[in-house]
Design a protein around this nucleic acid. Structure first.
Lengths: 192, 192
DNA sequence: GTCTATAAGAGGATAGAC
DNA sequence: GTCTATCCTCTTATAGAC
């Protein structure tokens, strides 16, 4: 799974190779623990070559998140336009899983393992963290009990966590994600 | 909640104050993104004072994890001595939640947010990550399906995640954790 | 037990040649 | 588009006075 696009993957130039290498390293070692030197070395190029393609280290993260943030943002907008209820929760959960599946397990290993940076990159309304909180709010509703709020949150996070805790399970990525979606659906509050 | 001990908290000397400050910063900003200077500044002391109490930055993490690792290690040993089955899964989940609750939400905000470092500190059998994998194995059993394996893993992780996703919920820490434990129990495979 | 001062190195980032 | 060489800052960690 290349990072350049969720639909097609030409994996053409150096820019995409940088994004792939950075994503893997960030997901594995963490953003702060990964240096520009390491990314360059892994590709057999030098640091300045990195800076020809990206303005900064932060810029690489921005590029990594751009695609996924657009889709999550669209999901939030769509959710706002729907009537609330159990059926909406099911539909959002499916779309959420689809977005994650389209980007591959490494992508949200990265998101989960670098929550702080992901948040700092775009603390505004279009950021991943902000969008997730908006989804929590929309799906739980204003009058939700503690249990209902927690159900919604753990359900959505479970899909993301599947990318991490599923690491040692001998099964294809698709099966793990599909199973996680089913379990998450179980968790969602059933009634309105 | 002081860090020095899970049972009593004399919060006596500078050493404990350092641990408290470091835990808060590591949980909030991440281990790599937190410098010794920041920890010192927060306490109104200087860096060398830190090094009087701890040999290195890594040494602080070791101290932070020592207590919790001992308890998780004991839980694994206890689990090994029990006959497997649904009842064992329920009991382990309760003990797991108790351990987390005893250390406070900040403690496993720290563990979850710094998975990489926590793993590197003790990659051997007594580390937190290794212990969790051992628990996965013991609770799921050798013949577990993908769904059963994922149920066990997401259930245990849900308790930990509650410390993070529960942040915005207006309820006491105890209620959030107790609720998370109930939801996690729902997730556990019911039959043998 | 805490300080001032400093060493030694790695990090992100840039200038300018090719 | 990639390189060599370099800058500046910040980091972890230590030496030695008080």
């Amino acid at each position: 799974m290349t990072v350049s696009s969720a639909t097609a993957s030409p994996r053409s130039g150096t820019r995409d190779r940088i994004l792939d290498a950075a994503l893997a390293l960030f997901a594995e070692k963490g953003y702060e623990a990964t240096s520009m030197r390491e990314i360059a070395e892994q590709l057999g190029i030098t640091k300045p070559a990195l800076y020809y393609h990206f303005d900064s280290k932060e810029d690489i993260v921005r590029a990594l998140l751009a695609d996924i943030e657009t889709q999550v943002d669209a999901l939030v907008a769509w959710t706002k336009a729907q009537p609330p209820g159990p059926d909406l929760r099911r539909q959002v959960l499916e779309r959420w899983t689809d977005i994650m599946q389209a980007h591959g397990i490494t992508a949200f290993k990265f998101v989960v393992a670098n929550r702080q940076v992901v948040h700092e990159i775009s603390p505004d309304r279009s950021g991943m963290v902000a969008c997730m909180h908006e989804l929590y709010r929309l799906l739980a509703g204003p009058e939700a009990s503690v249990e209902e709020q927690l159900r919604v949150r753990i359900a959505l996070m479970s899909v993301n966590m599947a990318g991490i805790v599923g690491a040692g399970i001998d099964a294809p990525e698709e099966e793990i994600l599909a199973t996680a979606r089913r379990l998450a659906l179980e968790l969602m509050p059933a009634a309105e």
